[in-house]
Simulated scan of single mutants.
Amino acid sequence: MPELPEVETVVRTLRKLVVGKKITSAKIIYPNLLKQPTNINQFETEITGQTINSIERIAKHIIFHFDNKVLISHLRMEGKWFYEEIGSQVNIKHQEAAFIIDDKMQLSYYDTRKFGTLHWQDVDNFRNSKPISTVGPEPFSELVTPNYLFNRINKSRKHIKTILLDQTIISGIGNIYADEILFDAKINPLKSGNELKLDDFEQIITSSRKILNKAVELGGTTIDSYQSAHGIDGKFQNYLKAHTRVGLPCLICGDTITKIKVNGRGTYYCQTCQVLE
């Protein structure tokens, strides 16, 4: 699943390719992709002739800015944007949308799992509407302080691993980076929110920024089938210290990395470095 670094990589790539270019025609191939508006013909008509002025990222969402509208893309599990020659579809079976660009190229959306979404909203109020309005601040935000996390989490009996995956509290962190952040912070993933101290939250913030900045620098993590865009592979998987390393020696203490399930999610940690007190 693409997390903050992978989505940031997609955004940086798309900016170089399509900002300033005009959409000359649009086709939604998989109707369930478009969540708003529900009238596909209306959307295809409205976006045709519009110029992509800029692209930003909010948490795991990609925001294409037009003159008075935005197109919000959530990649979910396997969504990918490809910039390709017209007619040269990477995998037509999984192509869900196609936008013809005025440079005779095509911006296509593919999704093998079909969980991705698109929302077409007014630029003036999209930040106050779903899906963006429910998204919590990113770890990089000045709003994310030890006190903010303490006030949001200190009464929770949920495991800290589960809490870090809650996008309404802190956004952009998924399964891979939650494992890496907790390993770096030396916090056991089974520890509940109400067991953590202010110093623990400060360490989580420090580790979050450190891990995510490094992952962004390396283009994200390419694991299993996920690739952020056509021909783009991240390199952070070469620097993982916990995630996927089950049975291997801990790079800090030499003990064996353990894999467990936390709220149904595969979780990797070191029982020595991340002791459950």
Rank of each mutant, 00 (worst) to 15 (best):
F236R: 01
S208V: 07
D199N: 15
K241Y: 02
K210S: 14
F236E: 09
R245D: 03
T206K: 15
R245Y: 04
H243K: 07
A229T: 07
S208L: 10
Q227N: 12
K235Y: 12
S208C: 12
T244G: 01
D224S: 11
G247K: 03
D199L: 13
K214H: 14
K235I: 02
D199M: 12
R245H: 10
K197R: 12
L248W: 00
D200V: 04
H243S: 05
N213C: 10
K210T: 12
L196H: 05
N213H: 14
L198H: 15
G247C: 04
D199S: 15
L218Q: 11
K241Q: 14
S225A: 10
A242Q: 03
I232D: 05
G219A: 11
Q203V: 14
G220M: 04
I204P: 12
L212I: 15
G247V: 00
R209C: 12
D224I: 05
T221R: 00
L248N: 11
F236S: 03
D199F: 10
R209T: 13
S208K: 06
F201K: 02
G193H: 00
I205Q: 10
A229C: 01
K197H: 11
L240R: 05
L212G: 09
D233P: 00
T222G: 08
K235S: 11
Q203Y: 08
R209I: 13
E195Q: 15
T206A: 15
A215P: 06
G231S: 08
Y239I: 01
K210E: 01
T222S: 15
E202K: 15
P249W: 06
E217C: 07
R209K: 15
G247H: 03
R209G: 07
S228K: 00
L196N: 06
I205H: 12
N194D: 14
V216M: 14
D233S: 12
I211W: 04
D200P: 08
V246P: 00
G219N: 08
N194S: 02
Q237K: 11
I205V: 11
S208N: 10
D224L: 04
G247R: 07
S228N: 03
D199Y: 09
R209W: 13
N194V: 03
D200H: 13
T206L: 15
V246F: 01
T206R: 15
E202Y: 13
K210I: 08
Y226C: 03
S207L: 05
S208R: 03
L212A: 07
P249F: 08
D233L: 10
T244A: 03
Y239T: 14
L198K: 15
T221Q: 02
E217Y: 13
R209V: 13
Y239G: 08
K210F: 12
D224H: 07
E202L: 14
L212N: 06
E202W: 10
K241I: 09
F236Q: 08
Y226Q: 00
L248H: 13
R209Y: 11
T244I: 09
I205G: 13
N213R: 12
L196M: 13
F236A: 03
E195F: 04
L198D: 13
G231F: 07
G219E: 04
D233G: 04
L218F: 11
A215R: 01
E217L: 10
Y226K: 01
E195N: 13
H243I: 00
T222R: 06
A242H: 02
G193C: 07
T221A: 05
H243N: 07
